[in-house]
Simulated assay, not measured.
Amino acid sequence: MTIGPPGTNAVSAASVDKGVGPLLRAWRERRRVSQLELAGRADSSARHISFIETGRSRPSEEMVLRLAEHLDVPVRERNSLLLAAGYAPHYPETRLDDPALDALRAGVQRLIQGYEPYPALVVDAGYDVVAANRGIAMLLDGVPESLLTPPLNAMRLTLHPQGLAPRIRNLPEWRGHLLAQMERQIALHRSAPLRALYDEVAAYPAPEAVSGGGPVEPGEPVPYFALPMLIEHEGRTLSFVSSISTFNTPMDVTVAELAIETFLPADPATAKYLHGLAG
């Protein structure tokens, strides 16, 4: 699978209408930072921060960006803060298929292909898959075409009762992990499309994990160093732990919202099996 254009999330007009002060206060409270602490980080004063939050003082563009940086505000939301303060957005949102991102697309494609035979994929802010390698294609064997129609969605593919869910042997644990991950993203980004996706996948039936066939006998200690995804493939149970990477200091909304997820074999048998398929 190759990289395609990601979905977008429009800036909320309602958020902009609130003014920058309440938005900044909400981010500060979310980060559990006092006005005094934020002032120290941003080389300002608690009084000035208070005046900004109550609307008695209009912050400069530089101050908005400085406060957003110290509050670790996502790039898309930094643009919302600037708009609410009466300034133009600072960060562009370039389509992923734009020639300006040729180097990014090529680099990401090389990265996930180099990870083969282990699975790796790239998703956008709505968990739509924008790139995936042959390891992911292997895991999707047998998934109905109705779920493979672009845009593929990683959460839907994983949790749908006709997707990977029936083959995930520790589905209750893995499902709980994915839903908690989405909840954290919703709290951070306040995205209506992401909330709709969460409501959809959370409503899917959640059957008990399939019994038997696992790599560990009952009563034996679990040898995993992180929660694994235990998934059946052609009569074998494969075990993976996942890692998610993002770009450092992104200067574009699209780039900021990309995430690369790699699946590392959690036991020697899984690694051997995947290398055997590739050989």
Rank of each mutant, 00 (worst) to 15 (best):
W174M: 00
E217T: 12
A180G: 12
G126M: 05
E53V: 13
V255L: 07
P218L: 07
R56D: 07
E183F: 01
N170V: 15
V123R: 05
T2M: 09
V241F: 05
A46L: 11
N153F: 00
G214M: 12
D124N: 15
M138H: 10
A206K: 00
E234C: 07
R56M: 10
D98V: 12
L188S: 13
T8A: 07
T237E: 04
M1W: 10
P6R: 03
S80G: 09
P117H: 07
E145P: 11
R195Q: 04
T8N: 04
E200Y: 02
N170R: 05
D102E: 13
L277P: 02
G107V: 08
E220V: 08
Y115F: 14
G126W: 01
A85R: 07
L71R: 07
L197G: 03
L121N: 04
V129I: 15
A269H: 08
A202C: 08
E53M: 12
I49N: 05
G114H: 12
A278P: 03
P193S: 09
H70V: 12
R110I: 04
M229W: 11
V130Q: 04
A46G: 10
A10V: 15
V64A: 09
Y115A: 15
E93D: 09
R78P: 06
A84L: 10
A100Q: 13
P99I: 09
A26Y: 08
V75M: 10
T262G: 05
E217L: 14
V64P: 01
I49R: 01
